[in-house]
Nucleic acid binder design. Sequence first.
DNA 1: CTTCCAAATAAGTCGGTGCTTATGTATCGG
DNA 2: CCGATACATAAGCACCGACTTATTTGGAAG
Lengths: 104, 104
Amino acid sequence: MTHADLFRALADPTRRAVFERLAAGEMTVSELKAGFAVSQPAISQHLAALRGAGLVEERRQGRNAYYRARPEGLAPLTDWVERYRTFWPARIAALKDVLKGMDQ
Amino acid sequence: MTHADLFRALADPTRRAVFERLAAGEMTVSELKAGFAVSQPAISQHLAALRGAGLVEERRQGRNAYYRARPEGLAPLTDWVERYRTFWPARIAALKDVLKGMDQ
DNA sequence: CTTCCAAATAAGTCGGTGCTTATGTATCGG
DNA sequence: CCGATACATAAGCACCGACTTATTTGGAAG
């Protein structure tokens, strides 16, 4: 699982949409397919790509495959961005606000 | 400049490398080319893609084109990631530490 | 076992993308 | 002007990537 895999996985709109739907909750391939205008093999292929990028996990049960998002898989991406946050002071304040709101 | 443009622009390794080099400082196309094993037109094409994604700015002076990174262009990307940070509590603490260190 | 269903894999098509070489457009220096 | 330099654009090519249909694998159910 390399940097390039991650970026390339997210480059496709359909694949991003799949990830977004899985972030909402675990789902089988059939349930996923229902939301998209592509064939079942296409979905399986996207899932394989997302899996290779560390963005998705699967759990087999009977003849169903349950997939769920793996948000930690985004870590390499944010780490990469982090390197340029130095040159990007404007957004730091906003981010601080977000985190402040998370304090309990 | 859409989400897809940004993600696709970053999907190419050479293009990411170009962006990274430009983040270190403004540079002409010729200077950029020196660091890569591709032709000058290839560099210009990558720069056009990065420019279309809002990741790069140019400044013309005489017959030189000075390019510099535009880190704010990464905003749509971090905004997108931010939506999944909710499902990703593990990294919040680390990020808080980073921001804490930025306090003066 | 046979049939049905969920999902993955195979194989082929087709447009997109990254590269090349060739050419165009300015600008600088003589 | 003129040649040289910096960069962009054009055109062609090879590969990749997303899709399709067809087929395979494997569990569930009769």
